[in-house]
């Protein structure tokens, strides 16, 4: 299964390198100076950005679902994404000339605060009402998004906000996406603690009885999720639903043992974002449809189906 997945992803990567607004053959890309420049300055970074962002978001979605013990949450729509945008916005307003490092830090810290806020909010919710968690999470994300909009209006940044918050990959060039490697690193960290996270799904008491340091594992996982979300928001904007749809699919194939499931999730997430970006490039060429638009259509439709599939298993 993983081999087939890898093969499919490789195909998508090749297609992504070959397809774009500039008309250039495969040979031209490699042999001419102009082609090489296009390849290494634009297409390769763009492709890598899609792969890294997709894999990171899918993994952090799965991790968050473990933490929230609910299959219907994902960080981008549940406050972490909006909080990252809030942090970035505040950073821009207070320190107009801030370095990329400062922006990154602001977004990460804000995303962390947003995630912790969500965890505190959903902790007391009864497990008998599983759909309450995603509802609270969505509205919580919406309220933080409302604060972002309010500040943006007051700071006359609405235009800017619009372009930022739609996850789009057309602006990705070399030198503008490398932050996503940090996201990849954070995702890899979750793989290292995958077994411990799986124990958390048994419930906190059971995990503690098995000798797990629940606080530490949870803290590490929340930090990783927040960093991934923040890096994606800073680099390409909001990409909702990747973290929701992909883990729900892979859990059916690979089960809930994270050590088995996470690689598949990463692979599928990368494939989804790359495919959405590719589709956005070809569907109305030479114009582009943002990857986020394609993914939201697919993701929201899948969410509705998941929600109403007979008796929703959670």
């Amino acid at each position: 299964m993983r081999l087939a997945g890898l093969g499919l992803l490789a195909l998508l990567i090749v297609a992504s390198l070959l397809i774009g607004a500039a008309d250039m053959s495969a040979q031209g890309l490699l042999t001419t100076a102009e082609g090489r420049a296009l390849l290494f300055e634009s297409r390769l970074p763009r492709t890598l950005a899609a792969v890294l962002a997709g894999a990171g978001l899918a993994v952090s979605g799965q991790v968050m679902q473990v933490l929230a013990r609910n299959r219907f949450v994902e960080p981008m729509t549940a406050g972490a994404g909006q909080s990252a945008a809030l942090g970035l916005l505040i950073c821009l307003l207070l320190l107009p000339g801030a370095s990329i490092g400062a922006k990154m830090a602001a977004a990460s810290v804000a995303a962390l605060a947003g995630s912790l806020g969500l965890m505190a909010l959903i902790r007391p919710l009864p497990p008998s009402q599983p759909l309450l968690v995603p509802l609270v999470a969505l509205v919580y994300g919406g309220v933080i998004g409302g604060v972002v909009t309010f500040i943006a209006w007051q700071g006359d940044l609405m235009q800017l906000l619009g372009t930022w918050l739609t996850g789009e990959l057309s602006g990705v060039l070399r030198g503008r996406y490398e932050l996503l490697w940090i996201a990849a690193g954070a995702s890899a960290l979750t793989y290292l603690i995958a077994d411990r996270l799986t124990l958390l799904t048994l419930g906190e008491d059971a995990a503690r009885a098995l000798g797990l340091n629940v606080g530490l594992v949870t803290a590490a996982a929340v930090a990783a999720v927040s960093v991934v979300t923040a890096m994606v928001v800073v680099t390409i904007g909001s990409l909702p639903f990747v973290g929701l749809v992909v883990p729900n699919l892979t859990a059916r194939l690979a089960g809930d043992n994270l050590r088995r499931a996470l690689p598949l999730t990463a692979l599928a997430g990368a494939g989804l974002v790359l495919a959405a970006d590719l589709l956005g490039r070809v569907v109305r060429a030479p114009y582009e449809v943002p990857a986020a638009t394609m993914i939201t259509v697919i993701g929201a439709a899948a969410f509705v189906v998941l929600l109403n599939r007979g008796t929703a298993r959670v």
């Binding site: 759909l131 969505l138 939201t296 509705v304 109403n308």
Partner: peptide
């Protein structure tokens, strides 16, 4: 879809709203 389950009605509505919005956006593009 919701069959009298209020929370499901709410959640499905919110997500359908997102779906309509993004589908519209796609259509505009």
């Amino acid at each position: 879809l919701a069959k009298g389950d209020m929370v499901r009605l709410c959640l499905t509505g919110v997500v359908l709203g997102l779906l309509i919005r993004s589908a519209t956006h796609l259509l505009q593009r």
